[in-house]
Design a protein around this nucleic acid. Sequence first.
DNA 1: CATGAATGAGGGTTCATTCAT
DNA 2: AATGAATGAACCCTCATTCAT
Lengths: 191, 191, 191, 191
Amino acid sequence: MSPRTQEQLNEIKKDKKQLILNAGLEVFADKGFHSGSVNLIAKQAGISKGLIYTYFKDKNDLLKEIIAGGVQEMLSIFENPENELITEEQFLFYINESFEILKNNLYFWRLYFSLVMQKGILELFGNYFMEMLAPFINTMTKYYSNKNIENPYAHVALLGSVMDGVGIDYLMQPDEYPLEDVKKIIIEKFK
Amino acid sequence: MSPRTQEQLNEIKKDKKQLILNAGLEVFADKGFHSGSVNLIAKQAGISKGLIYTYFKDKNDLLKEIIAGGVQEMLSIFENPENELITEEQFLFYINESFEILKNNLYFWRLYFSLVMQKGILELFGNYFMEMLAPFINTMTKYYSNKNIENPYAHVALLGSVMDGVGIDYLMQPDEYPLEDVKKIIIEKFK
Amino acid sequence: MSPRTQEQLNEIKKDKKQLILNAGLEVFADKGFHSGSVNLIAKQAGISKGLIYTYFKDKNDLLKEIIAGGVQEMLSIFENPENELITEEQFLFYINESFEILKNNLYFWRLYFSLVMQKGILELFGNYFMEMLAPFINTMTKYYSNKNIENPYAHVALLGSVMDGVGIDYLMQPDEYPLEDVKKIIIEKFK
Amino acid sequence: MSPRTQEQLNEIKKDKKQLILNAGLEVFADKGFHSGSVNLIAKQAGISKGLIYTYFKDKNDLLKEIIAGGVQEMLSIFENPENELITEEQFLFYINESFEILKNNLYFWRLYFSLVMQKGILELFGNYFMEMLAPFINTMTKYYSNKNIENPYAHVALLGSVMDGVGIDYLMQPDEYPLEDVKKIIIEKFK
DNA sequence: CATGAATGAGGGTTCATTCAT
DNA sequence: AATGAATGAACCCTCATTCAT
C-alpha cells in the first residue's frame, strides 16, 4: 500500500503532539517537573515512552513547549493596543479576564506556580514569564500613574502579588475558595 | 574521661537531629524536595548519610519533621489568647509580625510554597498547614466580623491570599521586591 | 508511461539494495557496528528506515551482506589459477595489488579491522574471512615452499600479519603513513 | 559497632576498584566499548550496577582508567635510559620483551586494537597511546639511524606495523598462531 | 514498494535505603 | 552512635524492529 501523504502525517503529528503536551501539563502540574516522570506522562497520554521522544528532544524540551504554549495563550488573551491608557471599565475587564483565565487554565497555573519556586528550573525559561506578565504590569502601572496615586510601582507589585496569592489559594482548593466574593473585594479596593 | 551522662547523650542526640533538620530545610528549600538528595543533606550537616536514618524513618519523615518544626515555630509566634478580639493596633501588630516572620524564615517559606502546589506531597501533611494558619484566620475573621464588614470570610480569605502572594513574590526576588511599601498599602487597604 | 517491466523492477531492487549496502558500509566503518544506527544508514542512503527491512532481515543481516560483498570483491581481484606456482614477478604483483586494494577500499578495511577484534561479532561470519584470505595464503605458501625457505607457514603468517599491521596503521593515519616507502621495504625483505 | 577505619575503607576501595577495572577490561575487550554494557561488567565483577558509580564517574571514566592502568604498565616495562643508543643485543631484548608483554596482556591489547579503529573513542585518550608508543619508536629510530639504514623512519613505521599486525593476528587465534617462529623471522629480518 | 509513527527492551545513571563494621 | 560501601528500583533516553497506511 502507498505510504501516508505528508498531510496525513502532519495531522497525526499535530494531534499526537498536543496529546502529549496535555498529558505533560497535567502530570507536571500534579507532581511537579522532577517527580512527574516521562513514564507517567506516556501512560497518561496512552502511548509508549519512546514516542515522546519523536516529538520532543527531551524532558526539558517538553516542559518548555508546554510553558510556551500556555504563555502564548495568555498573551493572545491579554493582547492590547500596547501603550493605550485604560479606563476604569477596562481595568475591571482586565481583572475579570484574569480570573477567567485562572479558572480556565487550572493545570497551567498550578504548573506555573510550582516552577516559579524552583531556582534551577526558572532559568530554563529566561524571560518567558516576564514577557507574559509584562503587558499586565505595564498597563496597570500606567493606570495607577494616571490616577496620581502615590508609588504606583508598589501598587502594581501588590496587585500582582494579590493575583498570585489568590491564584495559589484558589488552585489549592478550587471548590472551597470564595473566588467571586474575593474578586469583588479586589475590584473595590484596587480599582 | 568519664563516660557521658544520659543527659549529655540526649543533648548530643538533640543537637544532631537539629543539625539534620536545619540542613534538610536549607537543601529542600534550595533544590526542592525531590532534587534535594539525602547525600547532599548529610554533607551540608557534616555527617554521614546513614546517620540520618537513625533519626528519621525515611526522607518523607525528614520532610514532615522539618515542616512540623517550622509550623510549631509559626504557632508559637502567633499564639494569642485564643478567642480574644483584637484591636486595630493589634491588627497592625499581626500584619507587621507576619512580615517579620516571612523575612526571618526565608528557607521555610520557600519550602512551604514549593510544596504547597504538589498534590502528592501535600497529602503527607494532612491538616498541618491548615492548623498553622487557623489562629491567624480565626483572629482576623473575628476582627472583621466585629467591624460589621460584609462577608468577613471572603475578606479574610483575600487577606490570606495577599500574604501568600506577597510572600511568593518577595521570595522570588528578595532584593528587588518593595516589601515595605507594599506593607504600607496592605495595612491601609485592609485594616 | 508504460509500466515497468519485471527486469526494470529487478534493476531498481538491486539498485536500492546496493544503495543500502553502500550506506551501511560507510556508516559502520565510521561509527562502528553498534553505534552506526539504522536510522543513520537510511538517511545516508536517502531512503526510509523501514525499507531497509525489505531487503535485510535485520541489522546483523545487513552487516553480513556488507561483509560478504566486500569479501567477494576481494576474492574476485585475487582470483588466480588456483594451484599455480607464482614467479617472483607475480609475487611483486600480488603485494602491489594488495596495497591498491587497501587504498581503494578504505571503508571496507576500516570496518573489517573494527569487527575483527570483537568476539561476538566475529562469530557471525564463520569462515568468511578465512575463506577470503585463503587464496592469498595458499599462493604465498607455495611460493615460499618452492624457494626452499625454512618454515614457510610462519613466513606466510608473518607476511599476512605485516599486511594487516600496515593496513591498520595506514587506515589510522592515511595522510601521514609512508605507505610507498614501507611497501618497498616489504618487497625487499619478503620477496 | 564502630565504623570501619579509614585504612580498612581504603583497602576495600582499592580491591573493589581493581575488581571492576579487571571486569571492565575483560568485557570491553570481548564486546567492544559500546556493546560492553555496565550491566555486564557488574555481573562479571559480581557486584551491583550502582556500585560501579561509586568508583567511577561514568562509563567513559571507567574506560579511561582501564586504559591508563594498562598504559602505565606498558611504560613501566619499557622504561629505558631515555636517549641511550641501544646495541643489537638490546634490540633483541626489546623485541622479545614486546612479545612477552603481548602474551601477558591479551585483554589489554585486544581492547587497544578495538579502540584504535574507532574514530570517536580515540579522542578520549588524547596522546595516551602516542606517549605509550613513543619510547619504542624513539629507541628504534635511533637504532636504525645509527646503522646508516636508508629511510629509518619508514623502517620504524614498518616495524611498528609488523608488531601491530602480529599482535592482532595472534590475539585472534592465540592457540594457533606460530608466535615463536614468527618472532624469529622478525628478528632475523629487522635487526 | 515505501513510509515513518509507534513500540519496548535495554542502555547509562541517580539515589533512597540498608547493613556490616 | 556512626560510617559509607553496597544494593536495586526507577529515572531519562536510544534504537532496532514492526506495521498501518
